[in-house]
């Protein structure tokens, strides 16, 4: 089992779409996949046709002191995911914070209990505004991706956000090489953080938005799109990169 935490450097960076798409891409290469939504916006399930009326999820389970894996769903294609569920965000987050403070690796322990296959990937979608006491949760994962957009807001936020953990990379999302500013920022980020940026950026592709409109990931909705190709490349890169990191550790 390999665990990967994804977190946007600022709000609306497209982290949830990347998590869903990457999950689908890893699943397409034959890996068992489990996606966990820790973001109170509860959007992850929408990429897998989870109806609005469905209230079950991780937060309701935890608040009710039930095992959260009871709220796991499987998409039509076979991607497993646990939505955040409908719960009071403030209450849920403070619960999570308390739990993490007392036992930083609680989620990893829970996952270990599930006895997932060795080649399984667990992707955890974290909210961008992560309170400090939730950080250890990300630090317990094998690897972290910080999702950024090649725009000034993201770039400025990067300067404030502090250093990247050792087992972490920046991932550029929504890259549009047609726009000079984005191209420049893309090159600037690559130069500033040489070796710490995933070599493939995810392009800004209308297919991603259309996919959500169809309540699908782009991998299923537009298999020929560049975004699908980027996500597949990212999946290969992760398999090679994180695979090594785990073996070395």
């Amino acid at each position: 089992m390999r665990t990967l935490a994804l977190q946007g450097i600022n709000g609306g960076a497209g982290t949830t779409a990347v998590t869903a798409g990457l999950g689908a891409a890893l699943h397409a290469t034959g890996h068992p996949v489990l996606l966990i939504d820790l973001s109170p916006t509860n959007m992850l399930g929408r990429y897998f046709a989870l109806p609005w009326t469905e209230t079950a999820g991780l937060a309701p389970c935890l608040l009710a002191e039930r095992p959260w894996h009871e709220a796991a769903f499987a998409s039509e294609a076979g991607v497993n995911f646990v939505p955040f569920g409908q719960a009071d965000p403030a209450e849920a987050i403070s619960w999570l914070a308390q739990r993490t403070a007392s036992e930083p690796a609680w989620l990893i322990h829970d996952l270990a209990q599930l006895a997932l296959p060795d080649d399984a990937w667990v992707l955890i979608d974290l909210p961008c505004l992560l309170p400090d006491h939730l950080r250890p949760l990300a630090g317990q994962c094998d690897h972290q991706l910080r999702v950024i957009n090649p725009d000034p807001a993201s770039y400025l936020q990067m300067q404030q956000a502090g250093a990247l953990p050792d087992a972490g990379h920046y991932l550029i999302n929504r890259f549009d090489p047609l726009r000079t500013l984005e191209r420049d920022l893309h090159d600037l980020v690559q130069a500033d953080h040489a070796g710490r940026v995933v070599p493939t950026a995810i392009h800004r592709d209308e297919g991603i938005r259309e996919a959500l409109a169809c309540r699908q990931t782009v991998v299923e909705a537009a298999p020929h799109s560049q975004a699908t190709h980027d996500l597949a490349t990212l999946a290969i890169w992760l398999r090679a990169h994180v695979g090594q990191v785990v073996e070395n550790g």
């Binding site: 047609l178 020929h224 699908t228």
Partner: peptide, 29 residues
Amino acid sequence: VVLHLENGHLLQGESLDYSEGGLGLKLPA
């Protein structure tokens, strides 16, 4: 090669041959 269509869609293609004036492309479909 990445193809940027006017409607915002992006496609993944592959170049087959190049010349100063143009490119021959293979498309995914």
